[in-house]
Computed example of a mutant assay.
Amino acid sequence: MSRVATARSWSIPAPARTAVLALGVQSALALAYLLATDAGLAAPTMLAIPFVWLTVAVVAVRHADRPTVGRPGRWIAAAVGAAYVLGLAWLIGAVGPAMGPATGVDLVLLPPGWGPVLRFSGVGVAFTLVPYRAAGVLALGYLVSLSVRNVVEEGLSAGVGGLVAVGSCAGCALPLVTSLAGALTGAGLSVGAAPTVGGGTYVLGTAAYVLAAWLLAARPLRRYTTR
């Protein structure tokens, strides 16, 4: 009897493929941004932070479980997600009351991912959008809405895992309060300069963000609450 050896089939997991694609697109966009503007580069650790946030956001949103619910459930989930985005943006200082006269819109050219920063100051309201943080907060809001769908679909007991993940997300905002409070004022990120000060705070906030995104996308506690 002859024995035919067969090679073990092996493939790259889908989330890993998504991450590689996301990194490739970000690298191309960053290179184009650097060639088209006078923005400089940051220290390696600080330069890597936006890449981590954006890659995690893309992977989490692309591969998160999407519970099927009726239209009322989708609207409820969307409303909770939107409220979460606004609340988190307010907490980290990305959106808030205007502190002076209206100055309109302007752009600040910072290193890739950190910039271009879009700033707006109007009558009574102002916002500062750092690209990677804006994408990260929107991703968290979408993931929160998916967790709420679990509650709508399977009941409160089945959605406990998702709700715990929602609560854990608040933790990712805490390290950002200090770092973004100093952003564009010299404490964490100076206008026209590369981000160098307060790197430890940014790294801590990044670690908390990765954990929160994983909890919301994978919802690992859900398996213990759906028996």
Rank of each mutant, 00 (worst) to 15 (best):
residue 57 A to C: 14
residue 135 A to G: 12
residue 158 A to Y: 06
residue 169 C to E: 09
residue 25 V to M: 05
residue 218 A to M: 01
residue 218 A to D: 09
residue 91 L to D: 07
residue 221 L to T: 00
residue 207 A to Q: 02
residue 200 G to P: 06
residue 69 V to A: 10
residue 54 L to R: 06
residue 22 A to N: 01
residue 150 N to I: 00
residue 184 L to T: 02
residue 43 A to P: 09
residue 11 S to F: 03
residue 176 L to C: 10
residue 29 L to I: 07
residue 31 L to C: 01
residue 8 R to G: 00
residue 219 R to M: 02
residue 19 A to N: 03
residue 30 A to K: 05
residue 149 R to G: 00
residue 196 T to P: 02
residue 153 E to Q: 13
residue 73 G to Y: 12
residue 100 G to L: 12
residue 93 G to D: 07
residue 223 R to V: 10
residue 5 A to P: 03
residue 36 A to W: 12
residue 181 A to C: 01
residue 85 V to G: 07
residue 212 A to P: 10
residue 43 A to C: 04
residue 164 V to H: 04
residue 33 Y to D: 03
residue 163 L to Y: 09
residue 24 G to C: 07
residue 46 M to K: 05
residue 21 L to Y: 05
residue 60 A to E: 08
residue 117 V to N: 06
residue 83 A to K: 12
residue 91 L to P: 08
residue 197 V to E: 10
residue 62 R to T: 15
residue 122 G to H: 05
residue 147 S to Y: 06
residue 21 L to M: 04
residue 65 D to I: 09
residue 162 G to N: 09
residue 103 T to V: 14
residue 196 T to H: 10
residue 168 S to P: 04
residue 116 P to K: 07
residue 71 R to W: 15
residue 49 I to D: 02
residue 67 P to N: 09
residue 125 V to F: 10
residue 104 G to H: 13
residue 183 A to R: 04
residue 185 T to Q: 11
residue 53 W to M: 08
residue 202 Y to S: 00
residue 223 R to I: 03
residue 167 G to Q: 08
residue 88 L to F: 15
residue 136 G to C: 07
residue 181 A to L: 09
residue 96 G to P: 14
residue 106 D to V: 08
residue 161 G to D: 03
residue 22 A to E: 02
residue 7 A to T: 05
residue 204 L to W: 13
residue 169 C to Q: 10
residue 142 Y to R: 07
residue 203 V to W: 01
residue 74 R to M: 13
residue 157 S to A: 08
residue 77 A to T: 13
residue 159 G to I: 04
residue 79 A to Y: 13
residue 136 G to K: 07
residue 90 W to F: 14
residue 158 A to L: 08
residue 150 N to S: 10
residue 111 P to T: 06
residue 49 I to T: 03
residue 210 V to W: 09
residue 174 L to P: 10
residue 70 G to L: 14
residue 164 V to T: 06
residue 209 Y to G: 04
residue 35 L to T: 04
residue 146 L to F: 08
residue 162 G to H: 12
residue 110 L to V: 09
residue 1 M to R: 05
residue 182 G to E: 04
residue 152 V to T: 00
residue 224 Y to C: 00
residue 176 L to G: 01
residue 170 A to I: 14
residue 68 T to F: 11
residue 59 V to K: 11
residue 200 G to K: 01
residue 132 Y to C: 07
residue 76 I to Y: 09
residue 63 H to F: 13
residue 194 A to D: 07
residue 135 A to P: 01
residue 141 G to N: 05
residue 29 L to K: 01
residue 89 A to D: 13
residue 52 V to L: 15
residue 39 A to N: 11
